[in-house]
Amino acid sequence: MFSPQFTPGQWRPADPAVRAYIATRRTIPLLRDAAIDTNQSRAGSPPAMVLLIWVTGQGIFTVYTALATLLVFFWVIPYLLIAAGAVALMKRLRSLTAGLVISALVGAVTMGWLYVNNLVNPPASPIDAMSWVFLVTIAVGFAAFWLTERRSKAGAVEPISQDADASTRTS
């Protein structure tokens, strides 16, 4: 009954009765869209999800939970920078208030605790690895930025000072 046909960019059941049944199931849009819809942008990238499921050997819900956890971890550092930047900007504009400092501090501590809590109370097996995936990715990113900056400074030519320029014109 459910012999699937694979065509580029879509998946449909081969049996027209099954297609008609799925099309009438308006109460389950995910099932209807996954089986009939040719526009897969709502589902993200199905090949990437299938690849992750194949590599990890886990189910779709486990892979989704791991990726969602990793996405939250990647927002920790930007959120800390946003909170610190808000305080620094308001201080520079001389409109810093206690409410803003308290709000930024509560937000920064909350986002930091999301990561620290995962290290203190690790979740189930595939999801606990995301804290280390995050650390390794951030370390590689920082190392790449540091090496790029170091190489650009090593190859830079020193600017000529104005004193040296003035002495060469007078002689």
Rank of each mutant, 00 (worst) to 15 (best):
R42E: 08
R42I: 06
A43E: 07
A43Q: 13
A43K: 00
A43N: 10
G44T: 14
G44W: 03
G44A: 11
S45P: 04
S45W: 00
S45K: 01
S45D: 04
P46L: 00
P46Y: 00
P47L: 10
P47S: 09
P47A: 07
P47G: 05
P47M: 09
A48I: 11
M49G: 05
M49W: 06
V50H: 05
V50K: 01
L51P: 00
L51G: 02
L51Q: 13
L51R: 08
L52S: 07
L52I: 03
L52P: 02
I53P: 06
I53S: 09
I53T: 03
W54D: 15
W54T: 15
W54R: 15
W54Q: 15
V55E: 14
V55G: 06
V55Q: 10
V55C: 05
T56E: 09
T56H: 07
G57D: 10
G57S: 11
G57E: 07
G57Q: 04
Q58H: 15
Q58N: 13
Q58M: 10
G59K: 03
G59D: 15
G59T: 14
G59S: 12
G59Y: 04
G59P: 12
G59R: 12
I60E: 06
I60W: 04
I60V: 07
F61G: 11
F61C: 04
F61A: 15
F61K: 10
T62D: 09
T62C: 01
T62E: 11
T62Y: 00
V63G: 01
V63K: 10
V63C: 09
V63P: 11
Y64K: 02
Y64Q: 12
Y64H: 07
T65A: 14
T65N: 15
T65V: 06
T65I: 13
A66C: 14
A66N: 13
A66L: 12
A66W: 09
A66M: 08
L67E: 11
L67N: 01
L67H: 05
A68H: 14
A68T: 15
T69L: 06
T69Y: 13
T69V: 06
T69P: 01
L70Y: 12
L70E: 12
L70R: 06
L71F: 07
L71I: 03
L71G: 12
L71T: 11
L71A: 14
L71D: 14
V72D: 14
V72S: 04
V72L: 07
V72I: 12
F73R: 08
F73Y: 15
F74G: 01
F74P: 08
F74V: 02
F74L: 07
F74I: 01
W75I: 02
W75M: 15
W75K: 08
W75R: 12
V76T: 03
V76L: 06
V76I: 13
I77N: 04
I77F: 05
I77V: 13
I77W: 06
P78R: 04
P78Q: 00
Y79K: 09
Y79R: 06
Y79A: 02
Y79G: 03
L80C: 01
L80H: 03
L80K: 03
L80V: 07
L80S: 05
L81Y: 12
L81C: 15
I82Q: 00
I82D: 03
I82P: 00
I82T: 02
I82V: 15
I82A: 05
A83D: 10
A83W: 10
A83Y: 07
A84Y: 10
A84N: 13
A84L: 14
G85P: 07
G85K: 08
G85A: 02
G85H: 10
G85I: 03
G85Y: 01
G85V: 03
